[in-house]
Amino acid sequence: MVVRIANWMLRGIDATVDFICATSLLAVTAVVFFNAMGRYLFSFALVGAEELARLLTVYLCFFGAYVLLRRDGHVSVDIITLVVPAGLLRLLRGVVGMVAGVTMLYLAWYSWQLVGFSMRTGQQASTLPVPRYVFFLPVAVSASLMVVASVDKVVRAITNTLPPLPGWTDETVAADADKGKAR
């Protein structure tokens, strides 16, 4: 029961974070595009546009890191993981999950401190009419979410319910190449 609720909540978080990432990228594109168009067609430049694009990129980076952690999509060195037996791989993935959990807890802790500090000083972004702490919020939120994702990984390693690694086999790549795609 607890597991089912936890899984249901994690899926909800995943969908939300996916939405944030996808819309951030569409928004970066739109902001840069319309700002450039405005400048050249109508001699009208929004000074904050460049900073807004950077802010959205920061969201893209840190929330995307969570998505990748959930899907085992971060780049890693596969020299050993490709050849070890399943039992040892499960152990290694559990250990990595624990390291990730502790590291993200550390990061989350200091990120929230930074957010709080920035809120208290009341500093504004340099050209965008938003408080500066909105730049730090994605690290704090995403690191916290990554703690949750890491706990999930460790639990799954213990209960042997880890999903297979999304290894790129020669077949899937060959199929992609046939369709004219690299990814």
Binding site: R39, S43, F44, A45, V47, E50, E51, S126, T127
Partner: peptide, 11 residues
Amino acid sequence: QRLFGLNPVTM
């Protein structure tokens, strides 16, 4: 810069 009549761009 706006008062000068310019189009300011941050870079």
